[in-house]
Write a protein that binds this DNA or RNA. Sequence first.
RNA 1: GGAGGGAUGGCAGAGCGGCCGAAUGCGAGGCUCUUGAAAAGCCUUGGGAUGCAAGUCCCCGUGGGUUCGAAUCCCACUCCCUCCGCCA
Length: 438
Amino acid sequence: MIDIQLVRRDPERVRAALARRGDDFDLDRLIASDARWRAQTGRRDEVRGRIKSLSRDVGEARRAEDAGRTEELAGQSRSLGQEEKSLDAEVAALEAERRELLLLIPNLPDPEVPDGRSPADNGVRRWWSPGPGSEGRSEPPDPSEYGPHQRVPHWEIGAQLGVLDMERGSKLSGSMFPVYRGLGAKLLRAMNAMALDRHADAFEEIRPPTLVRTDTMVSTGHLPKFADDAYHIERDDLWAIPTSEVPLASLRRGEILAEGDLPVRLTAGTSCFRREAGSAGRETRGVLRVHEFDKVELFAYTTPRQAQEMFGEIVGRAEGLLRELGLAYRVVDLCAGDLGQASARTYDLEVYAPGSDQWLEVSSVSWCGDYQARRASIRYRPADGSGPAYVHTLNGSALAPGRPWAALVETGRQEDGSVRLPECLRPYLGGAAEIPAP
RNA sequence: GGAGGGAUGGCAGAGCGGCCGAAUGCGAGGCUCUUGAAAAGCCUUGGGAUGCAAGUCCCCGUGGGUUCGAAUCCCACUCCCUCCGCCA
């Protein structure tokens, strides 16, 4: 959540920042609620203070065996108790209201974030496509370089080669649950393994639970606002994670870290679950939008000073994997209106899929500032001896193999219908260099 | 799933219902002594709300209750440990 102090001190700044997002949050309601809460809390605390001091006097009177005075003071305290009780109930209600409002406010966009309301306003920061040299080219891909054999969508290729079975996935679990088969399944596993291995130099590998408590979902900003997007298991009141960002952010929830331990770099590969409510339609063909998919996530806790550099590091690492896979991609700077709830700045990596002539979002790197750290109460003790301060959190997909899988089979498709697989995956594929033509 | 035991400050570990936000030890930081180090001695050492500040208030797993007054008593929940059952 955002800093309530900032809302009090400079409401116009907060209002302006929220307006950039196109958010319709009613800030005045929060300001009023906060003011009421403060006023009543002050009154309650004053009454409590009087009760405390009276109670001490009761103790003294009792020790002095002054029964009359004891009863008199106790009586005074008793009647204050009534007052305290009703004030306390009021404070509790105001506190709940204030918190509820506060949890709904999205993060404030960083000033560098481009203006805009829709994906059309996003800024492309750079392009990359493979060849001709080993460095690749920093320019948009040339459509004429893709032959007609590559202009086939991945779901057709997958069915043709027997490596993707959407129909049977539907039989098991409904639409948008793919079944990968044979080399298709291996290819997915290979990319997961590679993504995890590539960051083992600096990121600690975590295998977290994929079912989590409500608090864990609240910490990242996925609840309470986006409850409809997540799977919820009623019986045990657990949520299926939409990304391993969720458990990784809560790993150190409620803790105070030593500055010397920062940055903390974590990586995890898990299944991710999304209901994708109301997204039936054209963009849901094949594996592009599914309810369950694998993703290898990079996550970091940093000091505010380290955040910028970490953002670059994570983007760079995600780019590195796409280059290794030989996929053409572009780096997109999300505009204010397209940012996620918790993010102050996001770069998306989009891969070019020739089969459907589309750019597919395959990675999203976000700097959340202290927004999640406030929700989850994750702080660090600055080395200079000042009081605990909130950490910054950053997250990004290293690789979410589903969509790259699609881009890979389209890009690698040969004229004879076989699919050529990238060099870097061979060690993970038992040496296989292609998915043979049927 | 059944039966027991437990949850207190960075850690360990006390705590008759009444100055207990909390003894003590360890750890950590500072200082003294020392050529330096060790040892010793002295001092400091949780978090939060509110307030310009002084201060006031809250936090002893969480939430309720009893009481003039709760870390201490009662209830519920959560988590941890031990044993039994089940199981990959």
